[in-house]
Amino acid sequence: MRLFIDHIKESIDYTLSDKTGIIIVSSLVSIACFINKNSLSDPILKVINVFLLIVVGYGSYVSWYALKGRDEHPRFKNNMKRLVWEGFKKSVIVFIYSGFLYALIRLAKLSYADGNLIFTVCFVILFILLYLCLIAGLLNRYLHNGKFIEAFHLREIINLIKIFDTRYFIKVIIAVIISQAFAASVVIPFSKGLTLLDIIYSIATFFLAPFLYISSKRLIALNVYDLLEKQD
């Protein structure tokens, strides 16, 4: 537990040490929120826009560097194409996995509605296993220089999952939940009202969500890096 707390502190210090990065990420998130609120296009296109791809790519590099034991921050200057490309690849991977996850949860609901508890439990278990494969697949990809196909390399994904004990599993899941909470905040647009609560929400979306996003990406990778070091 002490090591996990140290990783949290290190992740916070890492994020705060790059104030320019936080401002840029926050600004990009704000633009993405504005587009999501005002766009009348397909929902998928609303979420996957170039500004959001940059943020996703930035987060990938944060995790990537941490898994390599490096403390540097991803650069924005002269690096936008790489960030967009990385964000696009990760978004496609998540989209593919999400399609199957949605199908499984849909089947579970239908089975439950029909009173078939056995099938319901089976689909829920498959959903959980596939979700773990998504997390491990993204990590496995970072461990193989960001190769797209490595996110679907089932044998390596299973081998990576096997090295997690209960403690590390819980730590990584906590960080993943924080990171995905950020993703949800981007999909949900800024509040339209001007009440105190609306203003606080908008400020939190601008500063707090990106801060948690960067910190959680670092935290995930630090815990995995520490675990992999113990395997050597």
Results as ranks from 00 to 15, higher is better:
153 H>I: 03
90 K>A: 01
103 A>N: 04
154 L>S: 05
100 F>V: 09
82 R>H: 06
191 S>V: 01
112 Y>V: 05
168 Y>C: 05
190 F>D: 13
81 K>S: 04
61 Y>G: 03
197 L>V: 02
147 K>R: 15
144 H>R: 15
151 A>T: 07
185 S>A: 15
98 S>Q: 11
161 I>G: 01
96 I>W: 14
139 L>N: 09
150 E>G: 01
144 H>N: 15
61 Y>F: 13
94 V>Y: 15
194 L>M: 13
195 T>R: 14
192 K>S: 06
89 K>G: 00
102 Y>P: 00
87 G>I: 11
156 E>H: 08
185 S>I: 13
89 K>V: 00
93 I>L: 10
156 E>I: 01
119 F>N: 06
82 R>F: 07
160 L>C: 01
63 S>L: 10
68 K>A: 05
67 L>S: 04
111 S>F: 05
178 I>S: 02
129 L>F: 07
188 I>E: 02
63 S>H: 08
85 W>G: 02
88 F>P: 02
106 R>N: 05
154 L>F: 14
102 Y>D: 04
193 G>Q: 09
149 I>G: 03
140 N>M: 12
137 G>K: 02
86 E>C: 08
185 S>Q: 14
117 L>Q: 09
150 E>C: 07
79 N>T: 06
192 K>G: 07
69 G>H: 12
100 F>I: 07
156 E>W: 06
72 E>G: 02
94 V>A: 14
58 Y>C: 14
196 L>Q: 03
109 K>P: 00
104 L>G: 01
95 F>L: 15
134 L>T: 00
158 I>N: 10
180 Q>L: 14
121 V>H: 06
149 I>V: 08
118 I>H: 12
85 W>I: 11
153 H>A: 10
141 R>P: 00
154 L>C: 02
176 V>A: 10
63 S>G: 04
170 I>L: 10
158 I>T: 01
159 N>K: 15
150 E>S: 07
153 H>C: 05
67 L>Y: 09
161 I>D: 01
95 F>I: 12
161 I>H: 05
87 G>Y: 05
111 S>G: 03
159 N>L: 14
62 V>I: 12
60 S>R: 02
73 H>G: 02
141 R>H: 01
128 I>E: 07
109 K>G: 00
133 C>F: 06
62 V>T: 04
61 Y>H: 08
115 G>H: 05
62 V>Q: 13
147 K>L: 12
172 V>W: 05
177 I>T: 06
63 S>Y: 08
190 F>H: 15
153 H>P: 00
170 I>F: 09
115 G>R: 08
85 W>P: 00
149 I>L: 15
174 I>W: 06
198 D>G: 09
102 Y>T: 11
62 V>M: 12
